[in-house]
Amino acid sequence: MSWLYIKVLFRNKRAVFQPINIVIFFYIGLFQFVVGAENNLLIQEVLGYSLAIISTGLFFTLHSYRLVSINFDALSVWPISYSSINLSVWLISFYISTLIFLSGFLVLVFLNKSLIFDLLSCYLFTIGVSNVAYLALAIQEEKRYDPSLSAFSTKGSRVSHPFINNAVTLCLGLFVFLVKMLSNWFGGYLFWFLMSSAGVVGLLLNPILLKKVDEFVLQRSYLMKEGFRK
């Protein structure tokens, strides 16, 4: 049975690419982040922040929703026993990626201890804000957002937008950098405060937005049917 769960995980392109992205982006991001911060190179710092944000965005999108490769509607209805599915799909990927994530974090802190609060506030910001940004895009695109896939989906068929994922997080990275530049005048406290508050607000907004997206998609299908009827 475990072999089947592993197949579920590895046959899904998104499930395969997410952990690879995490490894690539996280370590490149950290490298750039450290180099950029030490040499005060603006472009490198922008890139560093952006990639660090992307990596955390990918990491949390993947893991906060636990399952990576099954449609959200079906998951809500099937009597899934967490003891079985978590052990084989979620826990394996979770522990592996957590290990990668934590080791990267520790490497960074070892290299530059003063960055610890910068990073922590960036992570909180990413968890809260990136998903809100995706959901807002889903509303605008009039498509159902499937958190289990971190992709947009319409009824039955999934339309994935990997570039949108990365574009959103890249924009967030630029935003973080701008706030960071401004906060230099306040000794960094403003940066930590703004990033952390935005993250908390985002976390609170997420469930509300998820419901809105669902409502919006169903409403649209009724509007379309009404149009045909007329």
Partner: peptide, 21 residues
């Protein structure tokens, strides 16, 4: 609708997963 299918699985595998669920 067809979103209840896990399309990248073989038919037998899909059923095995359902039995397990």
């Amino acid at each position: 609708d067809d979103s209840f299918l896990i399309k990248y699985l073989e038919v037998q595998e899909y059923y095995k997963l359902l039995y397990n669920f």
